[in-house]
Design a protein around this nucleic acid. Structure first.
Length: 798
RNA sequence: GCCCGGGUGGCGAAAUGGUAGACGCAGGGGACUUAAAAUCCCCUGGGGGCAACCCCAUGCAGGUUCGACUCCUGCCCCGGGCACCA
């Protein structure tokens, strides 16, 4: 479209979309989730996301804000690296090529991007500060090392990311079960912030769906930690949400990796226990967690005392108990827990019912009273929870406890394509942070970036790179050869955008104070739990370390919906992925933008069908005609009806747009245009007054920015339409003078009577009763009740 | 299994507890045209009736209410998230 190219050039030349951040009087930071620059280019889902966010930004601008709308590229990580491996290219060469394409596409769809603030996470000037973030956490004791399980494909002989494991098998070798290997890795202690991450959720202006996902991910459970003691005096704490059922705990189950297993195992069981533990350790992390599998386990030969009954119960180990949740040990109450029941039946272990009820076992209902529970018999379950916990606590065998599902964040990746973790190991000093003056630790250039069977990063093969002196003592040291998780790159990028020009700080104090936290963040719920959680966490830590004034990065977050194609999810395997380019070429950006926004509610997504696009083109054509029928003189008389419609439209659209109800906003604009076109030919013959058309063009501008600019210019304006102000509505002028009074008899509509607005109750009722059809229904019956709703309806109840 | 969404014409959808189907697509009829495209006008949930009108209809079954797509209870189906989490 010639018009679109013209305005994109003008915006560029005039700096229309590039506000001076330091001079902004009313800053509004409008953020969208930066894309991973894949080789395929933007797909329609990205485009949908960006356009919705862009419309929001453009609306805010018309409402008088100085809007900063930056974009960047999340170009490190496994996706890029795997693709590079597949096509046998170096990511270093591949990524810039993809970025060029993305930039073109982003311009093409007419985003209000401030290109001077573009960033890429792979740029050393960016990842220098990603490493800096790591160092801040390291220095403050938030980063630590421990052995963690990684996925290992025996065929690829390499570490796999979780995304590469499909139902326990390697995605490239579907015959090969993935196993686990234990490696020393870096973790961020996000669990220290778990309460704040959870509690703050309530205060955030975020989509409910996103907050719910985060809350579930954090997974708070209230319960108790109870202690079973072995004959030799070892204490085995277990976490349970059902301390009320303690009297029914007929055995214990420990995770196979539990540290007490050795001490507990009886001589005659040592053989089977050792074998079982080896077997489990070979299973991969993912397969271990896939439910519905038959449970396995072995008896240790050891016993521990149930703190409530005083009886010694057998201690088993089984794969259904996980070391990394709770205490890695459970008390099994087979009568009231399905998993324990299944295991007890399988292993022929005793089952004791302790909640009264005649349902078949197991039943887990908390509605009931206790039985077989000593002094607590007859007490309601919910009531007994606290009592039993306290009773055990008095003897030092229990305490109330809260557990969270959230784990610490493993940030080590045994890969090439990421920022090297800025640590140097020294025999004398241990792990030492790279001094900040030495940042960035550049990712060394190498052709040999394939992962291999060593279990460590390809960087571990570059001796000249990793051999460095210890920054503390000068002795021989060795760099950390793992790179960091891509999610660390994206956990702070919004802090960098305003400050991209600053080489000596990650983010400038004054600019950050002026522009952050982010006013509006729009993105997909697929990032609800990882990216959004990590970004909140990093922000909180940097706040606590004194680098930021705020602890929550995104004041408002809205999750957009998903675009499906003719009812089905888009995927490469289905071959139904919509590539935006062809549509942009055929219809232009404005028509395409409006089509996507008209599909359905933005926060719910929509169903993409080619047939619908033409409707938006027709609408723009109609607007075009209206603009060209506009009289600059403004002498024609205007029917009240049209003025009323204008003000109703302004009111409706002004309510819809900030709430992201773009589909209904567009529908209202269409109705208004239809009304303009229905004006008497005589009135149109004198031209439609500009006062009726200009507000329309302004309201359309967020949706169809190029088109609106062209219309605005043709209406005689020199400046960009985005210098205009969003129209205000006059409530008086928007008022209807005629209404349709609905008359119901027993709640069924029997008549619609034209009446003037403000008709008093008595008159409305008289009118209603006089109606012929209504009379037929009230007939001889006595009217028992009359409901009157002003300017709406009369309901006669007989 | 648990936690979120959602279920309305041929299709995408709209409706502060108050006229169900706005807006758009598709379809039908007509105008303009030598013709087609484009454009414009009219019709378009189902059924009955010459008509005025009437009956039915928002996944299913109940309930609350003068009145329910909207609120409540139970169930069915679709989409998403979590998942031996104790």
């Amino acid at each position: 479209m010639a018009i679109e190219a013209k305005w994109q050039e003008r915006w560029e030349a005039r700096g229309t979309n590039a506000p001076d951040l330091t001079r902004a009087a009313k800053p509004y930071y409008n953020l969208m989730m930066f894309p991973y620059p894949s080789a395929e280019g933007l797909h329609v889902g990205n485009v949908f996301a960006f356009i919705g966010a862009d419309i929001h930004g453009r609306f805010r601008r018309l409402a008088g804000h100085d809007v900063f709308e930056p974009i960047g590229f999340d170009a490190f990580g496994i996706h890029s690296e795997n693709y590079a491996l597949k096509v046998n290219m170096h990511p270093e060469a591949l990524i810039p090529r993809n970025i060029v394409r993305f930039r073109d596409q982003l311009r093409r769809i007419g985003l209000m991007v401030h290109w001077k603030h573009e960033l890429s996470t792979t740029d050393p000037a960016y990842y220098k500060w990603t490493q800096w973030v790591f160092l801040q956490l390291f220095k403050a004791g938030h980063a630590y090392r421990k052995a963690g399980a990684v996925n290992w494909c025996p065929d690829c002989k390499t570490v796999l990311a979780n995304e590469q494991v499909v139902d326990g098998f390697c995605e490239r070798h579907p015959e090969t079960p993935v196993t686990q290997r234990w490696l020393e890795q870096w973790f961020f202690a996000i669990t220290r912030y778990v309460e704040r991450l959870l509690d703050n959720l309530e205060k955030l202006d975020w989509s409910d769906s996103t907050r719910t996902l985060q809350a579930n991910w954090i997974g708070r459970s209230d319960g108790a930690e109870l202690v079973f003691v072995t004959p030799t005096g070892d204490r085995i704490p277990v976490f349970t949400t059902r301390p009320d059922t303690i009297f029914g705990a007929t055995f214990l189950v420990l995770a196979p990796e539990h540290p007490l297993v050795d001490a507990l195992t009886a001589a005659e069981q040592r053989e089977v226990v050792t074998q079982y533990r080896r077997k489990v350790s070979e299973m991969d992390v993912v397969a271990r967690r896939v439910g519905a599998r038959e449970k396995t386990g072995v008896f240790t030969g050891g016993y521990a005392r149930n703190p409530a009954t005083g009886e010694n119960v057998p201690v088993w180990i089984a794969d259904y108990v996980l070391m990394d949740y709770g205490t890695g040990a459970i008390m099994a109450v087979p009568a009231h827990d399905e998993r324990d029941y299944e295991f007890a039946r399988l292993m022929r272990l005793p089952i004791t019912q302790v909640v009264a009820g005649d349902q078949p076992l197991p039943f887990t209902s908390r509605q009931g009273t206790l039985t077989n529970s000593g002094a607590f018999d007859g007490m309601r379950c919910d009531e007994s929870i606290g009592k039993i916990s306290d009773w055990l606590a008095e003897r030092g065998l229990g305490k109330r406890q809260v557990q969270f599902r959230l784990h610490d964040w493993c940030i080590s990746r045994q890969r090439y394509w990421g920022p090297p973790i800025p640590i140097i190991y020294c025999d004398a000093c241990g792990p030492v942070g790279v001094p900040e003056k030495d940042l960035p630790v550049l990712l060394p250039e190498t052709e040999d970036f394939r992962p291999d069977d060593s279990g460590v990063s390809p960087l571990a093969r570059i001796e000249s790179w990793y051999r460095v002196p210890c920054p503390q003592c000068g002795a021989e040291g060795r760099r950390e050869t793992d790179v960091s998780d891509t999610f660390l790159d994206s956990a702070w990028y919004f802090l960098r955008y305003p400050s991209t020009a600053f080489a000596d700080v990650p983010f400038d104090r004054a600019l950050t104070r002026q522009w952050l936290p982010v006013n509006s963040y729009i993105g997909g719920n697929e990032h609800a739990v990882l990216h959004l959680m990590y970004a909140r966490y990093i922000t909180m830590v940097l706040h606590d370390l004194g680098h930021l004034d705020f602890e929550e990065p995104f004041t408002r977050f809205r999750a957009h919906g998903m675009i499906v194609k003719e009812g089905a999810k888009m995927s490469k395997s289905r071959g139904n992925v919509v590539v935006p380019d062809q549509y942009l070429a055929k219809w232009g950006a404005d028509t395409f933008r409006m089509y996507l926004m008209f599909l359905g509610p933005y926060q719910e997504g929509g169903d993409f069908r080619d047939e619908g696009i033409v409707g938006q083109r027709r609408f723009l054509d109609k607007v075009w005609d209206v603009v060209h029928a506009t009289s600059m003189a403004g002498r024609a008389s205007v029917p009240d009806r049209v003025v009323r419609k204008l003000h109703q439209t302004i009111r409706g659209v002004s309510e819809d747009v900030p709430e992201l109800r773009y589909n209904t906003a567009l529908a209202k604009l269409m109705e208004y245009v239809n009304a303009l076109r229905k004006m008497e030919p005589g009135q149109k013959g004198h031209g439609i007054p500009a006062s009726l058309v200009e507000p329309l063009v302004v309201m359309l501008a967020p949706f169809a920015p190029h088109f609106a600019e062209e219309c605005w210019e043709r209406l005689g304006h020199q400046a960009t339409v985005f210098e205009a102000r969003w129209p205000a509505f006059d409530a008086e002028l928007a008022k209807e003078d005629q209404i349709e009074l609905v008359v119901q008899v027993n709640g069924k509509v029997r008549a619609r009577i034209a009446a003037s607005a403000g008709l008093p109750e008595a008159q409305a009722i008289a009118l209603a009763r006089a109606d012929e059809v209504v009379r037929k229904f009230i007939d001889t019956n006595e009217i028992r009740k009359i409901i009157f709703v002003q300017d709406r309806l009369v309901n006669l109840v007989v």
